[in-house]
Design a protein around this nucleic acid. Structure first.
Length: 752
DNA sequence: AATCGTAGTGTTTTT
DNA sequence: CACTACGATT
């Protein structure tokens, strides 16, 4: 391998070669940050002879970690075994699996997600007889999270005596932690907090990790919170070879406890820190970059830097002012079609693009719906990143709850979740009684159940049912000793009758649940094929710690939809940012402080800088949030863009719009369409005064529309239920009164 | 115990 | 509008 660093610019080279001592790299968007990190690791191993096991690299998502590992392996041609590249949370989980016994937990602890956390919290609050209306569980939850992020344990927390919420919080926090311990479970925040506590309590453990971590690297440093920073600081203390890479302009997780201040403290905490700033951008056109620079320079709390590029000037940014969110969605579809199909009206001769080159960003998940509907109408394949996560689905969580209980019988939340799934005639009343019984004896729920049996405490009928359940779980626990997690899952699916019950149900929903469970089994077998041995615990850890982006598959040829938060770290040739409105971006529910506004601006900046070649921005003049329409003003961030960079797209005229729906854009595509099978669309429209709704196409019906029915005459749409084929509408006819019709067969004509 | 229906309530972003 | 929490019903 001839010198690696030849592929890098002089400043990047410096960041790679400066291996000893503390280093702070400000890496602007698209400045080759991952490149620097991977080359640096390769350089350490290849040129400096550092053992891979003495390198720790921390990222925020598993996707970033995987990518980094892959790229290092490519650089070193496979000799990267043993480097510790991981997220903060997985790294901590791994440490705790080794040493958590020092903190009074068992090594087979489970990791609770947010939902489990809330269940626990509610149980605790209920026990304390707190009014959920007065003290919102969610507020408690986020307060506890915040305390954990700050490294505050229940004992250390000093509530104000005049603040009733804080006083209650202290109590709830205390009880909640006790409850978790009884269940041998930890939540997200505990993973970090407990490692800190562990290091404090058992210095030898800390020392062993310090010795291991000769070279430490942290990606996305601007997103670290207090406790993460402390952890890193600790680990790098001995060797002082710590390199952090970040961009204060891309700090968008302040609300989650991220401290941009960590960047400033870094120079203070590590005397002799060298600072390198990467400002050359390799991603975007000049126009896009200018736009980004203009927006972000309005922020006061930031380190001055100006990104530049040698890339071509590129096209101007396009702004579209839509009538409402439906119109905005139509704009999105128009632009997508324009890029994908060569001779789309209005885009003659433009290059043909695959769908995967295009992404749509929005501020909040709820915005995806309007866009999705329009994409579906026009049969444009898309994926949503985030939103409802696979592992958060009911059926998946049920199966995982079985596995968690098998791994850790103390896990009462999982026990409660599955004890009557499928139904075993053990209801809430019974469980409540057993809960109280167990608590009185400070036993985990499962142990409490066993004890209740032993003492003949339950009614004979119930006794039998509980006994049967325990027998089932004990069987599984035996099986778990010899079977792989995948085999175990198949066994429990068969023996519990979970799948069977779903199949019997036979509804579309149940069927899709069966599919999801199939998918879970696939994931498991896939995982087991890759590695030598997957323990149940390590599988569950993995599942608990996946993020949205981790599951994002960019292999498939689809348009990507995601929030601006999710977009960080990704890039696309063509980007559309929708909802550039006051109240949405910046969001009206942000905090009061200037910092909060600046974070919204950074979010906008992150969105802009994802685009490589072309950027579209849009806003809607009115948008119905919540079912009620509201007029929205243009986002102030639009005003911060220089006029010369923007071309405004004309709004489609009403008539054009009606008729454009009749022409199929899919007839004349010229690129490879894509591998996804959609039924061919046949738009058999007839042209009269209005638009006749296609019998098997899409139904652009909206409430308030005036329509004509061949038999009932003219009427107005009162309400609409469902979508596509199943859509039904209630229409009030002038002569016939209200009628509920299946739109598909109604043969309606839109008059207005 | 399970299912169904209704009233009331609330949506930012998520490792 | 969409979800869920709760209450009434079988």
């Amino acid at each position: 391998m001839i010198s690696l660093v030849n592929d890098l610019n002089p400043i990047q080279q410096k960041a790679v070669l400066e291996t000893e001592g503390p280093l702070l790299v400000f890496a602007g968007a698209g400045s080759g940050k991952t490149r620097v990190l991977t080359y640096r690791i390769a350089h350490l191993i290849h040129e400096k002879g550092v053992s891979p096991r003495n390198i720790l690299a921390v990222t925020f998502t598993n996707k970033a970690a995987d990518e980094m590992r892959e790229r290092v392996e490519r650089l070193l041609r496979g000799s990267a075994k043993g480097i510790w590249i991981s997220t903060f949370h997985s790294a901590c989980a791994r440490i705790l699996r080794q040493h958590i016994n020092h903190l009074g937990f068992e090594r087979n602890f489970v990791i609770y997600d947010e939902e489990d956390q809330e269940r626990h919290l509610k149980a605790v609050m209920k026990e304390l007889d707190l009014d959920f209306k007065m003290f919102h569980p969610r507020a408690m939850q986020s307060s506890i999270d915040r305390l954990k992020n700050e490294g505050v344990t229940p004992d250390q927390y000093r509530p104000s005596q005049f603040n009733i919420f804080e006083k209650r919080l202290a109590l709830v926090y205390q009880r909640y932690q006790e409850d978790l311990r009884r269940n041998n479970g930890v939540d997200f925040g505990d993973l970090l907090l407990f490692v800190t506590l562990l290091f404090k309590k058992i210095p030898e453990v800390l020392r062993s990790y310090q010795n291991l971590c000769q070279y430490v690297m942290v990606d996305e440093f601007q997103d670290t919170n207090l406790i993460q920073y402390q952890l890193i600081k600790r680990l790098a203390e001995r060797h002082q070879n710590i390199c952090v890479v970040g961009d204060d302009d891309q700090s968008i997780y302040r609300w989650r406890g991220a401290e941009v201040g960590n960047i400033l403290n870094f120079e203070r905490d590590f005397p002799g820190t060298k600072v390198i700033t990467l400002e050359q951008n390799y991603r975007s056109t000049q126009h896009i970059l200018q736009a980004a620079n203009h927006v972000v320079k309005e922020n006061r709390l930031r380190k001055e830097k100006i990104l530049w590029t040698e890339n071509p000037e590129g096209e101007l940014l396009t702004l579209y002012v839509a009538e409402d969110e439906a119109d905005e969605a139509r704009f999105v579809v128009r632009k997508i079609s324009g890029h994908v199909h060569r001779s789309f009206p209005g885009n003659p001769g433009s290059a043909v693009r695959p769908y995967r080159d295009i992404a749509v960003f929005y501020r909040i998940n709820a915005q995806s719906r309007a866009i999705e509907e329009e994409l579906v109408k026009h049969q444009i394949p898309y994926t949503i990143v985030g939103g409802m996560k696979f592992y958060e689905r009911k059926e998946i969580k049920d199966i995982l709850a079985y596995l968690k209980l098998i791994a850790n019988p103390s896990d009462g939340i999982s026990l409660k979740r599955i004890i009557n799934h499928p139904p075993r005639g053990i209801g809430e009343k019974t469980m409540e009684r057993i809960t109280v019984f167990s608590r009185e004896r400070s036993l985990p729920l499962y142990e409490g159940m066993k004890e209740a049996l032993k003492e003949d405490w339950l009614s004979p009928g119930m006794q039998e049912k509980i006994e049967e359940f325990i027998l089932l779980i004990e069987e599984f626990r035996q099986e778990a000793k010899t079977l792989s997690p995948g085999q175990l899952t198949l066994t429990l699916l068969a023996r519990t009758g979970y799948l069977e019950r779903l199949k019997e149900e036979g509804t579309d929903e149940a069927l899709s649940r069966v599919e999801n469970i199939d998918e879970l089994v696939n994931v498991l077998t896939e995982l087991e094929r890759g590695e030598e041995e997957v323990s149940l615990e390590s599988f569950l850890d993995k599942v608990s710690l996946v993020s949205d982006v981790d599951l994002y598959e960019d292999r498939e040829n689809r348009v990507s939809l995601m929030t601006l938060h999710c977009a960080k770290g990704l890039e696309f040739p063509i980007v559309l940012i929708v909802g550039m409105e006051e109240g949405l971006l910046p969001h009206y529910r942000r905090g009061e402080e200037m910092e909060d506004l600046e974070e919204e601006r950074r979010l906008c900046y992150v969105g802009i800088t994802r685009a490589k070649e072309k950027l579209y921005l849009s806003r809607a003049e009115k948008r119905s949030t919540f079912g009620v329409g509201r007029a929205n003003l243009a986002s102030r961030f639009l005003d911060e863009l220089p006029f010369e960079l923007i071309q405004v797209e004309e709004r489609e005229r009403r008539m054009e719009r009606l008729f454009s729906q009749e022409t199929s854009w899919h007839d004349d595509f010229s690129g490879p369409r894509d591998e996804i099978d959609f039924p061919a669309q046949e738009n058999g429209f007839s042209r009269k005064e209005g638009v006749v709704l296609s019998p098997d196409g899409f139904y652009p019906l909206r409430t308030g529309m005036r329509v004509r029915h061949p038999r009932f005459g003219d009427g107005r749409v009162k309400s609409i239920e469902g979508m596509n084929e199943d859509q039904k509408a209630t229409i009030v006819f002038r002569t016939e009164g209200p009628k509920r019709l299946k739109v598909r067969y109604a043969n309606l004509e839109i008059l207005e």
